[in-house]
């Protein structure tokens, strides 16, 4: 079947989708957006978290066909979303966002210069930057899902308590860090967002 939806602000179309495919599979294998991760495919780890019409969900449990006409933001679109928020733009309109071609460039040409390989110079959202700075990334497999969840939490609750952070991220498993640095990162992002700590 064919599925049309918006990903990170751009209209997309997937063809020949098997009816049992998840949104996660379509994003990863058909859209060239493998940032959302496939750690459990049973809604128990949060690694595949995306925003579906603004709401964080496990994309492994959304049937591809259910995404028809919906608006999806993945980790690949977080920086653009944050930039949009800063500018006060309408983030859901599709006026901004990462184009698919742009997002998949890194894989289209692995021989590109070293800067593109490290992502240096890449625009990051505050929560992405905070995860790097706080040492919240080890293997990184849980990171995209955590970032989408944390970004949404900070959007709704700019000054969360530790208990709020823990509750909001309780659907995202991490096996490497013991979560301490993840808490640090979210606190840091919140503080920077509030302007109490500079970058």
């Amino acid at each position: 079947m064919r599925v049309n939806f918006t990903v990170n602000g751009r209209r997309q179309e997937a063809d020949d989708v098997w009816e049992g495919e998840s949104l996660l599979y379509v994003l990863r294998e058909r859209m060239g957006l493998p940032g959302s991760k496939n750690a459990c495919e049973q809604g128990e780890c949060g690694s595949c978290t995306v925003r579906l019409d603004g709401v964080p969900v496990c994309s492994c449990l959304v049937a591809a066909g259910q995404a028809q006409d919906r608006d999806i933001v993945t980790v690949e679109g977080l920086a653009a979303l944050a930039a949009c928020r800063t500018e006060g733009g309408d983030c859901a309109s599709g006026a901004c966002g990462t184009g698919l071609d742009e997002a998949r460039q890194w894989r289209a040409d692995p021989a590109r210069g070293t800067d593109s390989q490290t992502g240096e110079g890449t625009e990051l959202s505050p929560v992405q930057q905070a995860f790097i700075d706080a040492g919240a990334v080890q293997c990184g497999f849980c990171t995209p899902g955590l970032l989408v969840a944390a970004d949404e939490m900070l959007e709704a609750n700019p000054s969360p308590s530790d208990a709020d952070i823990r509750e909001a991220l309780s659907g995202n498993l991490c096996r490497c860090t013991g979560y301490e640095k993840i808490l640090d990162a979210v606190r840091l992002a919140a503080a920077r967002q509030e302007g109490t700590v500079s970058r």
């Binding site: 998840s22 495919e41 049973q42 492994c60 449990l61 959304v62 049937a63 259910q66 028809q68």
Partner: peptide, 27 residues
Amino acid sequence: PIAGGTDVMVEINFDHRRPDHLLDLGR
């Protein structure tokens, strides 16, 4: 019927279920 998908999709992902029809109630 599939709405939130939180039961049905687990069964499909883990190959426990292959219904002839999925009825999406999401719309």
